[in-house]
Design a protein around this nucleic acid. Structure first.
Lengths: 223, 223
DNA sequence: ATTACTATACCTCGAGTAA
DNA sequence: TTTACTCGAGGTATAGTAA
């Protein structure tokens, strides 16, 4: 992983070079820009080059630096993260395809300790089963946003036999019906959303496997 | 200065909390989010708090974290830098007020070694004097952008008596007349722009001290 | 349970310097 | 000139652990 000063160097060079992604610099000048030593500037250019963020060609008095695609990409990624941090979205819309679960959802959702929490925190008593929606690849990164969000906390618990893990929930609507997305606490990358609702959604919305539905997920606990 | 991981922690918490700038977290969860140890997460929260980026209140199982104005500010600052890095501006517009120089500009601009370079690199033979423009406070940060830009390099030189420092130039227009901004190589914060031009600008544009002019500065060497 | 101190291992920085 | 190596000083991270 890039250290802070390496990232700074990459950013400052990109700013300096402008829209053409190359330019000339020497270690003394870079050291000045970063308020560090010439030796460190040298090391930074070597690291950035080794890691493939820049390529360079040493000349007599300065070096020609090209910022690679990978270098631009990491800057852009940081920009995106900061944008989502400072201009937070309130809800996300995804498209999902109804699919059959393995009956596991029904088992978990039926545990008393969970049910009490659903009632308390989601303000409804759920139908004892889940609706599973497969999310398209194009919407997968929207779902990934949920990994960084805390959501409504559902605590785990232990019985004599086994441990039931914690989860987090987000309020959502499917075809205008109130429900909630349930995700395991430890975020695993998944392309399936599990929904709970006061209603048996398959019946209420006349859904069968393969049907497409629109889901609007609310990131805030209440509006 | 914030270390990379401290900055990451601040950003991740901001993303997690959304538009309300507070939320709950514990050191174990934060450690997970940052792929580091619980001890480091603890230290990070202590540092961020000591430096005034967050305030916190420890509860039984988690802490209530509030991201302060200073914390938001440093995130926003980074966002701005990255935006300008990845969406580079081609030119900047500032307003300046004509003022009298000390005659120094005339002395420097008249040095042969400089004149040859102006001719070669700016493609004009300058009038032997500079037009000094005082930049308003509100435009000062636009000018600060130039510090990070390389511009057109004007080399320094030595005579028997003394050393003449290097400079950088940016093409610009004042009231539609071609000219160039000249800045010392070592960027010093200044609120005065020195312009050179093929013409005696005061005469050509009928300017007197105190007159306001608009300057458009081009950041790229040519369009 | 979670937090954070201590101690040690590890890493990063820059002065000196060779090429 | 500028670049980058070595090495010692200082700073940072984590395991162990007390509160």
């Amino acid at each position: 992983m890039l250290t802070r000063i390496e990232f700074e160097a990459l950013k400052k060079m990109k700013i300096m070079f402008g829209s053409v992604n190359f330019g000339f610099i020497n270690t003394i000048k870079l050291a000045e820009m970063l308020a560090t030593s010439q030796q460190s500037a040298s090391r930074i250019l070597i690291s950035l080059s080794n890691e493939g963020y820049i390529t360079r060609k040493t000349e007599s008095r300065k070096q020609r630096i090209v910022i690679t695609e990978k270098g631009i990409e990491i800057l852009r990624q940081e920009l995106n993260e900061l944008t989502s941090a400072l201009n937070p979205v309130e809800n996300i819309d995804v498209q999902g395809q109804v699919q059959s679960g393995l009956g596991e959802g029904r088992y978990y959702v039926s545990r008393k300790y969970y049910i009490v929490q659903f009632q308390e925190k989601l303000h409804f008593l759920p139908y004892l089963g889940t609706l599973n929606l497969r999310i398209s690849d194009s919407d997968a990164e929207k779902i990934a946003l949920l990994n960084n969000r805390s959501g409504i906390e559902i605590h785990g618990f232990k019985t004599e036999d086994r441990t039931f893990g914690g989860a987090k929930a987000f309020r959502c609507k499917v075809n205008n019906v109130d429900c909630a997305v349930l995700m395991p606490e430890r975020s695993v990358h998944r392309d399936v959303l599990e929904l709970i609702s006061p209603y048996y959604l398959r019946e209420k919305l006349s859904l069968k496997d393969g049907d497409e539905v629109k889901v609007q997920i609310y990131l805030k606990e209440r509006n």
